[in-house]
């Protein structure tokens, strides 16, 4: 890339060949001698950092996945696809994979459903105080995941937690649970924390895209006797469909990540691997187990998985874009 940053030949601007460069639209400085040096000086620092700390590490993930390497020793043994064949028999890995998929499906469906509902209610019914609601609902999105993990650890605490304490107060002692210590429950507890974190963010996005739908469409459909529910499915949803698709893709990418940071800070994957997700298992293999090659093979699976899911979702939700 670095050698291609030469200035374009003078007058090579295809869009306005007959005009002097000064009047070329949107680029006052196009085609002056010395442009190349300026472009390079502006671009190279950013590209160098980007290449060093993003492209190269990404390539490394793929390269290292083909080696058996215990970290700091110099011995790196090429093992081809062995790491990947081992993965298929690794029950902990399969469990982490299942957990990731379960969290993705449940959290995505619930968050988007509730986010859409809230956004529709807030924009259509013009609830009094909706800016206050929006302000509050967005708060979790600015909090760090460590804080959220700490909050939920306190809420879920077995002895003095908000949840069990409240249940005791209501004489519902029978419903008390070890929210983060029960293998069957822990994943739901994590899912609720994820929902709590991301609901406001998606609501705000949908609110802004719903706000751009012209009021006449609703008036017309109301004259035709459409109920609020019918309006939502016949008018709102089709018109924000493209926006919905985009957020779905980003949701999946960020949920893979959020599930990890939350699990890392809140449960550490426990109890006994019951809340382990793909990325946390990758970390465990790399740092705790010093199986760097194996860990990076998991990394490759995560890359491939999130890419494939995004692609499939994008394909499955493709519709003719509607204009208004």
């Amino acid at each position: 890339m670095t050698t291609t940053l030469t200035p374009p030949p003078r007058g090579a601007s295809k869009r306005a060949p007959s005009r002097p460069p000064v009047s070329a639209r949107g680029s006052a400085a196009r085609g002056r001698p010395g442009d190349g040096r300026f472009v390079a000086a502006c671009l190279l620092p950013a590209l160098a950092l980007f290449a060093l700390f993003m492209i190269w590490p990404t390539v490394s993930v793929f390269r290292m996945s083909l080696y058996s390497w215990s970290g700091f020793s110099a011995q790196m043994r090429f093992v081809g696809l062995d790491n990947f064949t081992k993965l298929v028999d690794d029950e902990q890995f399969l469990r982490a994979f299942q957990n990731t998929v379960a969290l993705l499906v449940v959290v995505t469906v619930v968050t988007m459903g509730m986010g859409l509902f809230l956004a529709a209610v807030m924009t259509r019914q013009k609830l009094r105080g909706h800016t206050l609601y929006r302000f509050v609902l967005y708060i979790p999105n600015v909090l760090s995941v460590v804080v959220i993990a700490a909050i939920f650890s306190a809420v879920y605490d077995q002895e003095n937690g908000l949840l069990n304490g409240t249940l005791r107060l209501l004489s519902l002692d029978g419903l008390q649970q070890v929210w983060l210590g029960d293998q069957k429950l822990v994943l739901y507890s994590v899912a609720i924390a994820m929902l709590w974190q991301s609901l406001g963010y998606y609501m705000v996005i949908y609110m802004s895209s719903m706000a751009s739908i012209p009021e006449e469409l609703y008036e017309a459909s109301a004259l035709d006797g459409a109920s609020a529910g019918r309006q939502f499915f016949a008018v709102t949803l089709p018109l924000i469909w493209q926006n919905l698709r985009t957020t779905l893709t980003f949701f999946i990418l960020s949920a893979v990540n959020l599930s990890f940071v939350l699990v890392r800070a809140m449960t550490g994957g426990g109890p006994d691997g019951a809340s382990e997700v793909l990325l946390s298992y990758m970390y465990k293999q790399a740092y705790t187990n010093s199986a760097y090659g194996y860990g990076m093979a998991i990394g490759v699976v995560i890359f491939a998985f999130s890419f494939l899911v995004s692609l499939l979702v994008s394909r499955a939700t493709r519709r003719e874009p509607l204009q208004f």
Binding site: L5, S27, F38, L43, P45, A46, L47
Partner: peptide
């Protein structure tokens, strides 16, 4: 420091390899 100049150049200048970047 690194992104403002790079973004400006990408937005306003034509150069070889721009597509790849």
């Amino acid at each position: 420091a690194v992104s403002v100049p790079a973004a400006y150049v990408v937005a306003r200048y034509e150069f070889r390899g721009k597509g790849i970047v």
